[in-house]
Amino acid sequence: MKKSFIVIGTIVLAAVAFIGGSKLYQQSQTSERADLASSRSANLVRPHSPVFGSESAKVTIVEFLDPACETCGAMAPLVKSLVTASFGQQVRLVVRYAPLHQGSDQIVRILEAARLQGKYWQALEAVLASQSRWASHDNPRPELVWDIVGNVGVDIAQAKADLQNPKITETLRLDREDLVALKVSKTPEFFVNGKPLPKFGPEQLKELVKSEVRLAYGQ
């Protein structure tokens, strides 16, 4: 029957157009975000941000992170291993905040207060690792974060006193501004030497870091 061929042909054509259109759209989005990140590189890395790894590392992972976001927590061990693989000599991590969940600002303030005591990375790791205890969507218990950071040696009384420190407020304000400037609307969002991931995923992040290391160090 000729007519059923027309119908089936139309379905195939529509499917091809949909898939092709999606690929094209995603490519144009990625290059747009890359252009945005390179034209606004000052918004990508700010001097106030916490840095894990050596200042001289030639590959910089910028992570926009929300302490309450599960995917950020799930990616944390991988991100850490990407830096420690070269003992921080080739790859470093810059943490930017994207406090998109309700109440995330407060957690960011606690983390930044821990940073004033030199306990930032321990605190961040512990907070992300214990999300299931405090960041449940139907029963968030941000007050538990104090116990968690207390366990890694943060002086809680001091941290509470530092919570409204104007430096921390300024960090939050600038990071929020840069979220808008770089059109970051989801967490985590990664840029490796200013390049966004072509598609979100742990494998894509690993690949991008690997290729940037190869580019910078010729391995």
């Binding site: 139309t10 529509a14 949909f18 259109g21 999606s22």
Partner: peptide
Amino acid sequence: LIALVSTLGALFSSEI
């Protein structure tokens, strides 16, 4: 055809 294009268009706007 109109329904098919509309459906795929709606899915494109939300999913892609």
